[in-house]
Amino acid sequence: MNTARDLALVALDAAPDRPVEQGDLSLALAGAEILDLVEAKALVLDGERILPSAQAPTGDRLLDEATAALMRQEPYESVEDWLWRRGRGLATAYVDDLERVGLTTRGRGRRLRMRTWRTEPVDSAARRRATERLAQAEPVLTALAAAAGVRDEPTGQDVDDEAVTTVLAAVGDSVMELEAVRQRRQIEDAAFDNVWRGY
């Protein structure tokens, strides 16, 4: 199961009605990659630390890149640090990769802007699977989609796995931190504009 790819697909599907912030989606995708790599046995979580395991190929280019990017020396990396480091620009990487493998098409040849997606998923088995997972309120995908702004809120279903709970909590905290940074910048920009105008 590729939760990161499914999350990218449902974000693109929702984009015409719900513009998604690139940073929020990138953080959620980085969290999804951790969970995909746990499932692939490429890493294990020890509390909030990411411990690399076997470096066997996953068959997915971006997940293999993520595996190669894991810190392999103690004290290893925390989930939160991974989200910020790996998440930088990750939404764009997934959108480009989906187009490369033929799962999306770009409308009218215009370059993608994250708030107004210019690419959309094609009808495919991967898209149907991702949409079905979200429609069935699969807890992990639903929680990540909510963190990315694709849905209003998670379903409230409990996740009975400590690693999953750790990752979802870190994603939620990181998205809130990013939103606080955005708000602070807006306040600073407004204050600067007022000074510039002489108020």
Rank of each mutant, 00 (worst) to 15 (best):
A135F: 01
D64V: 07
A143G: 11
Y199P: 05
Y199C: 06
A69W: 04
T119G: 10
E132Y: 10
T116F: 14
E39I: 02
S174P: 00
P19S: 04
L62P: 01
T165S: 09
P75V: 05
G87V: 05
E77D: 04
S174F: 05
G59H: 06
T131R: 15
R61F: 13
I187Y: 15
A68D: 12
D6F: 03
D161V: 02
A56K: 13
L25E: 12
L45C: 08
M114A: 15
A68N: 03
V101S: 08
E65R: 13
V150L: 11
R72T: 11
T165G: 10
Q186R: 15
A66P: 02
I34T: 06
L141R: 03
R18M: 04
L168W: 09
T116P: 03
E132S: 08
L43K: 01
L90T: 05
R129C: 06
D193Q: 14
V159Y: 07
R128Q: 15
L43M: 06
E80F: 05
I34G: 01
Q55P: 07
V175W: 06
G47I: 02
A190Q: 14
V79T: 08
V20L: 10
M1Q: 09
E179R: 15
D152M: 09
G149P: 03
V159T: 10
P75G: 06
L134Y: 02
V175P: 03
V140F: 06
G31C: 00
A68M: 08
L141M: 06
A30C: 01
M114I: 05
Q157S: 10
E177S: 13
E138C: 05
Q136A: 14
E179V: 13
D81E: 10
W117H: 13
P121G: 09
A69Y: 00
L45T: 04
R182N: 11
V195K: 13
P57M: 07
E21I: 07
R18Q: 08
Q22N: 13
T166R: 04
D173E: 08
P16E: 03
G102R: 04
Y76W: 12
D173F: 00
A32W: 04
R184D: 14
R5Y: 05
I187A: 15
